[in-house]
Amino acid sequence: MKLIPTKTVFLGFIIGTLACCKPENATPTASATTSGFDMTKASLIKKGDFVEVSHGPTTGTAHVYDQAGTKYVVLDPFVSPSGPDLKVYFSKDKNASDYIRLGKLLSTRGKQEYIVPGSPIVGDYHYVHIWCEAFSVEFSHAEIK
């Protein structure tokens, strides 16, 4: 019986270990869009550019659209540093003292869309934040006007 060479076993172990080390909460880097949003049918309510708060430069623009009564927050273009447990908050002020959670950040780069849940008065919401929830750290925010 031919034995598997030690080198192959070792290499397989290293590859397997590295594959298992992929962080569960890492944010994907590919562009992410949802099927429900159609820009041709939506009207822009307000928008604003992202500014860095911590952990490296974030660039891009946050838009708020209305499509048949449903409100969408669209990040396009968008580039953000990666981090654990990144969430998108839609808030009334700079400190996110009252916010709506739009969900997990779908991607660290490229166009992405988020439905605003419930029926909030979007006029009261002036900021979009990228927030590392697990460590309570704000990465960036965009003031939308």
Binding site: Y89, S97, D98, Y99, I100, R101, P117, E133
Partner: peptide, 13 residues
Amino acid sequence: NGNYINGPSGKMT
């Protein structure tokens, strides 16, 4: 300062 989380909404307080 903490983050009050209640499903889809929250507050920093």
